[in-house]
Design a protein around this nucleic acid. Structure first.
Length: 255
DNA sequence: ATGGTAGCCTTGCTA
């Protein structure tokens, strides 16, 4: 089972890229973030015409996540538990072919020292709590998405550029590591020790052309899923296209 | 060098 996560930065702006990617890459599951549209506006027909089913949560202009899959999608959660007052569309979870998968879009959290950063840390704590609860199930679990956290120095072109950024704060990295210590495996890093393998390059300052990126899109695997991890990688192809998302797909294969 | 770009369907916000 090939599972891919991709922050597309608007599904409407990126629909051609997404359909091309489905046909070229043939994922069994594609986890999308930042679809930036309400459920009713999601281009469901185009996705289904290509041969994938879709489960979607969304809101106007911001956030929004989706799960595309070849097989039947049984939605198990359309929001992250732990805060009924949280109205942002950032979490969707489903059972597909005996695997529990989630599409996760963490808050960016900038600027630091504001309520936005507090919301990010609270969201990470809620995700850790729920990730621990999911371990109690018999199923393999794959939590994939844009975590908006740079895990380590090897995952950024220059940490000095990010010292005042929410993605590189010690509190952000510690909260991310707590999920790993709960028993989850970073599918990319588990199989590829090379430094400076990125999943995001800012649109500004020629970051893509200079390969100055960060690795913030992650697939976190429960032990039962990690036992089946056969391959993983980052597909830089979509980032190099015209009118690309600023993120590129990250994938893993469960045998 | 406190800039730069992209998507939202705004005239600024979010990233």
């Amino acid at each position: 089972m090939k599972i891919v996560t991709w922050n597309v930065n608007s599904i409407k702006a990126r629909l051609g890229h997404v359909v091309d990617f489905l046909k070229d890459s043939q994922p069994d599951v594609l986890l999308l973030q930042e679809t930036k549209c309400p459920e009713a506006d999601f281009p469901r027909l185009e996705v289904e015409s290509a041969g994938w089913r879709a489960a979607v949560v969304g809101q106007k202009s911001y956030n929004g996540v989706a799960i595309l899959a070849r097989e039947k999608i049984e939605v198990t959660a359309d929001r992250l538990p732990g805060d009924d007052g949280d109205a942002q569309s950032r979490y969707l979870e489903a059972r597909i072919g005996g695997v529990r998968v989630a599409s996760v879009y963490l808050p960016n959290g900038n600027p630091i020292g504001t309520e936005k950063f507090a919301y990010k840390l609270a969201w990470l704590a809620r995700l850790e709590r729920h990730a621990r609860d999911l371990l109690a199930s018999e199923e393999p679990v794959v939590l994939g998405g844009d975590y908006n956290v740079i895990p380590a120095e090897d995952d950024v072109y220059d940490p000095q550029d990010w010292v005042n950024d929410a993605l590189w704060q010690l509190d952000s990295r510690r909260a991310f590591r707590r999920i790993l210590w709960a028993g989850y495996t970073d599918a990319f890093r588990a199989l590829d020790p090379r430094p400076h393998q990125y999943s995001f390059w800012d649109y500004q300052a020629g970051r893509w052309m200079r390969n100055e990126g960060i690795r913030i899109d992650h697939l976190l695997l429960s032990p039962a899923a990690a036992d089946r991890l056969g391959a993983s990688g980052i597909d830089r192809g979509p980032r190099g296209r015209e009118r690309a998302s600023d993120h590129t797909p990250v994938w893993c294969r469960l045998d």
